[in-house]
């Protein structure tokens, strides 16, 4: 890299040499008024965020994908009638491959992935399950983020709270995450509210800790000190100086958390301690499909693929949004 720099510098000198002298210099009059003016382009935080975000072509694709995922999980199930037990008494429908189903019924969306262990539609099942899994993830994310941000901000500001919460954090941090979740879900039971409770009872702590560290860093930055010295009101300092910086932190956490909750649900349901049997969820579909995944691959791979697509899209989109919401990228 060093050698290319030297090359560039020599090139610049060559270029300057060839230009005429009057192109290089012009006279600037001395005006006292101008020196009082601070000129900078007009800056709007959210406009810059959307400008940076939409500049990237791949983000359009991911936005489209998330749109499809959300429509399929929240709107599509309203128009279909999914019942896990619809063919439970008809063993001729059990474990039929997509090919067999198309032969029997012609091409239909319902049997595009074949039928499951109890003759239910895999395709419909996936979206009914995705709705449960995603809703749990969203609910847990909202609760954890709200608690984490509020408590984290207080934690960053209050000395007394700092000692107490640090002690709590150090203890909880010692327990491996999956183990903690396993024990909590086992303790609380297997309903959806209980599952969300298990995810949130200590989930906010990690978020609050990250947030507390960020608040500590930003609070005493020089530009905040300068703003305060210049007499900027606290509300303006918080909204213009601190919050934009923290927005990107929030987005970064959110981008990692939502896929993590989906993943936790899938994992715990697979381990047999997640949601109860009558609740369709991606974890349960994978668990059911896993029993004979080499024999009936169509029962197993579609839920894995869909859950992977959902988490990847959410993760990548969140990361891009986090990048775009970081004010330091707005200067480009």
């Amino acid at each position: 890299m060093a050698s290319t720099n030297i090359k560039r510098v020599t090139l610049d000198i060559e270029k300057v040499k060839t230009q005429k002298e009057e192109d290089l210099f012009y006279f600037v009059e001395n005006k006292t008024v101008n020196s009082e003016k601070i000129t900078a382009p007009r800056y709007s935080y959210w406009k810059s965020v959307s400008r940076i975000f939409f500049k990237k072509k791949s983000n359009w694709i991911f936005l489209g994908l998330i749109g499809i995922v959300l429509i399929m999980t929240y709107i599509f199930p309203l128009f279909i009638d999914y019942n896990q037990m619809e063919n439970v008494s008809n063993s001729a429908m059990f474990n039929k491959s997509p090919g067999e189903m198309i032969e029997k019924y012609g091409f239909s969306l319902k049997w595009i992935f074949g039928s499951g262990t109890f003759g239910d539609s895999i395709f419909y099942g996936i979206w009914a399950s995705a709705r449960v899994s995603l809703s749990i993830a969203f609910a847990a994310a909202i609760i954890n983020m709200a608690l984490g941000i509020v408590i984290g901000a207080l934690w960053g500001y209050s000395k007394r709270l700092d000692t107490i919460l640090n002690f709590v954090y150090n203890i909880i941090y010692n327990i491996p995450y999956l183990l903690l979740m396993t024990v909590l879900v086992y303790v609380f039971g297997s309903g959806i509210p209980q599952f969300i409770l298990a995810l949130t009872i200590v989930g906010w702590l990690g978020i609050a800790y990250v947030f507390r560290t960020q608040v500590l860093i930003i609070r005493d930055r020089e530009y905040n000190l300068a703003s305060r010295c210049l007499g900027t009101p606290t509300t303006k300092v918080v909204s213009k100086n601190v919050l934009p910086y923290l927005t990107s932190v929030i987005m970064t956490i959110l981008a990692a958390e939502i896929p993590a909750y989906v993943s936790t649900e899938v994992t715990l349901s697979y381990l047999g301690i997640g949601l109860s049997a009558e609740v369709p969820s991606l974890g349960r579909m994978i668990t059911l499909g896993q029993v004979s995944w080499t024999v009936y691959p169509w029962e197993f791979w579609p839920p894995i693929a869909v859950s992977s697509i959902i988490t990847i899209v959410l993760y990548v989109l969140g990361q891009s949004l986090a990048d775009a919401s970081d004010p330091r990228t707005h200067m480009q």
Partner: peptide
């Protein structure tokens, strides 16, 4: 990104497959 975002169970079974 793949390993971080995909559910643990997902990529384990992909390797197994």
């Amino acid at each position: 990104i793949f390993i971080t975002a995909v559910p643990t169970l997902g990529y384990i079974f992909m390797f197994a497959g």
